[in-house]
Simulated assay, not measured.
Amino acid sequence: MDKKIEHLGKLSGKVLLFGGVYSNLQALEALKRVAESENILPENCICTGDIVGYCSQPEETVQLFKLWHAKSIAGNVEIQLSNEAEDCGCDFKKGSRCDGFSQQWYPYAQSKLSKSSLEFLKPLPDHIEFNYAGKKVTIVHGSYFNTSEFIFKSTPWNTKKSNFDVTKSDVIIGGHCGLPFYHEKENKLWINPGVIGMPANDGNPNVWYTILNDKNETFNFKHHSLKYNYKLTNKLMQNDILPKEYARTIVTGIWDNTEILPAIESGLQGFGIQL
Rank of each mutant, 00 (worst) to 15 (best):
K136W: 10
L8M: 07
E59L: 10
N229W: 12
T258E: 02
I46T: 00
N146Q: 14
F152A: 14
Y144S: 06
Q63Y: 15
D91A: 09
S266D: 06
E38F: 07
P205F: 10
I191F: 01
S12G: 10
G270H: 10
Q26I: 11
S102T: 10
L121V: 01
K227L: 08
T138D: 03
H7C: 08
G253I: 11
A263N: 11
L81D: 00
S169R: 00
E186Y: 01
E149V: 03
L118M: 15
Y22R: 07
G142N: 06
P107V: 03
N213G: 13
L41P: 05
K10I: 15
N24Q: 08
K160S: 00
A35Q: 12
Y108C: 05
V171S: 04
G13D: 02
W105K: 11
P205G: 10
E29T: 10
P107A: 04
D99L: 09
G49W: 00
L261T: 11
F101L: 15
G75W: 00
L275G: 10
Y54E: 02
T210P: 13
C90T: 07
L124K: 09
G174P: 00
Y106P: 01
G75D: 01
L17E: 00
L124T: 03
V251Q: 12
G95R: 14
K94L: 10
D202F: 08
C45L: 04
N257F: 13
G175C: 05
Y182G: 07
R248C: 04
W255D: 04
I196Q: 06
S154L: 02
N257M: 06
G19H: 01
M237A: 13
W208V: 12
L11I: 01
P107C: 00
N83R: 15
D240A: 12
I196K: 05
E149D: 07
G89H: 07
E259D: 12
D256W: 08
N234E: 13
N234V: 07
F101P: 02
S169V: 02
D2W: 12
Q238F: 12
I46S: 00
I79D: 01
S56N: 10
Y132V: 06
H141C: 12
I196V: 09
K231S: 14
N44I: 06
K112F: 05
G253D: 11
K235F: 08
A85R: 13
S266H: 07
A74C: 08
G253R: 13
H69N: 10
H141S: 10
Y209P: 01
L124C: 09
C88E: 00
K222I: 02
T48V: 08
F164K: 04
W157K: 13
N229G: 04
E129R: 06
H69W: 06
L17T: 00
A27G: 13
A247I: 06
K160C: 00
N204Q: 11
G89A: 05
K215G: 01
V171P: 05
Y228T: 14
D87L: 07
Y144G: 02
W255T: 04
I211H: 02
Y246Q: 14
T155M: 09
N239P: 12
G134Q: 05
N204C: 08
I151H: 05
L242K: 09
S12Q: 08
A109D: 02
E84H: 14
G270D: 13
D202I: 04
L212G: 02
R248Q: 13
F92K: 11
E78C: 13
C177G: 03
L275V: 09
L189M: 13
F120A: 06
D50F: 03
L179M: 09
V137S: 01
